[in-house]
């Protein structure tokens, strides 16, 4: 069976950057900050490329919803191995519901056999878009995937759950969200980056897709976590127990 795999990728503040709360306290500063592909999306993309390399998929389409600059993320995705890209352009900050609704439009248009996406984005850590998308499409979902095997029109997915691994079978088409240990994404090599400049990138306007993008949430305040207090080294177990009882008052 050959199918198309759709991989949504998000442009986020690079994981090496220490995020800084913007001066107005309404969010994190993104101006002039290095941005890159959400690491979980990179893993989801790697898995899709491997499925194509194993002959389970015919092509990999990446989609990003965001500002014009998100096309850099899409070029990176194509340099890693995606075949074509779609940019759904918007300058608005979108919530998971709106993103899932936009992705649903793209799914209906592209007709993939599988949506492979990150379990969450490292900027807002919502962990919701994949689940909402599956529900909206009426498709099965397998989240937190650490292994994916495709056979007979089904995906056998190992999921990382508390205390172990749960294996689920989902029939395709389905939504699978990737966890950290699913694979190790490849580099975008320089020759492949050069070739990726010539791969097709289509731009759509988010406003034109007939989806309600209105935010449902209001950010009240964003603040940095309090500084951690310095620790103390205790000499004996007795001293530790004593301190836990008298100072920390947790025993």
């Amino acid at each position: 069976m050959t199918m198309k795999v759709l991989v949504p990728v998000k442009r986020v503040v690079d994981y090496n950057i220490k995020p800084r709360v913007a001066a107005d306290g309404r969010g994190v500063e993104t101006q002039g900050v290095k941005m890159s592909m959400n690491p979980f999306d990179e893993i989801a993309l790697e898995e899709a490329i491997r499925l194509r390399e194993k002959g389970h998929a015919s092509s990999v389409v990446v989609v990003s919803i965001g500002p014009q600059a998100a096309q850099d993320t899409l070029r990176t995705a194509m340099a890693m191995g995606a075949d074509q890209a779609i940019l759904v352009r918007t300058d608005a900050a979108l919530e998971p519901l709106a993103v899932a609704n936009l992705l649903k439009v793209i799914v209906e248009r592209e007709n993939p056999g599988l949506v492979s996406m990150g379990k969450q984005a490292i900027d807002d850590d919502m962990n919701a878009t994949g689940q909402i998308l599956a529900a909206k499409l009426g498709w099965p979902q397998a989240t937190f995937a650490s292994q994916v095997k495709i056979h007979d029109g089904k995906a056998e997915v190992s999921r990382e759950v508390d205390g172990g691994i749960e294996v689920v079978n989902v029939s395709l088409p389905a939504v699978i969200t990737a966890d950290l240990r699913l694979n190790e994404p490849r580099y975008a090599s320089l020759p492949n980056i050069m070739k990726a400049r010539k791969k097709p990138l289509e731009t759509l306007d988010a406003e034109s897709l007939g989806v309600d993008l209105t935010p449902r949430l209001k950010v009240v305040n964003v603040s940095e976590p309090p500084e951690r207090q310095a620790g103390v080294i205790v000499e004996t177990v007795d001293e530790l127990v004593h301190k836990l009882k008298t100072e920390a008052k947790v025993l």
Binding site: E184, R186, Y187, S189, L190, P191
Partner: peptide, 18 residues
């Protein structure tokens, strides 16, 4: 070259320079 480990061995993702 990309993907060389600490000991100088090629990792699975070794990519030679261009």
């Amino acid at each position: 070259d990309m993907g060389i480990d600490r000991e100088g061995k090629h990792k699975a993702d070794f990519t030679p320079g261009m």
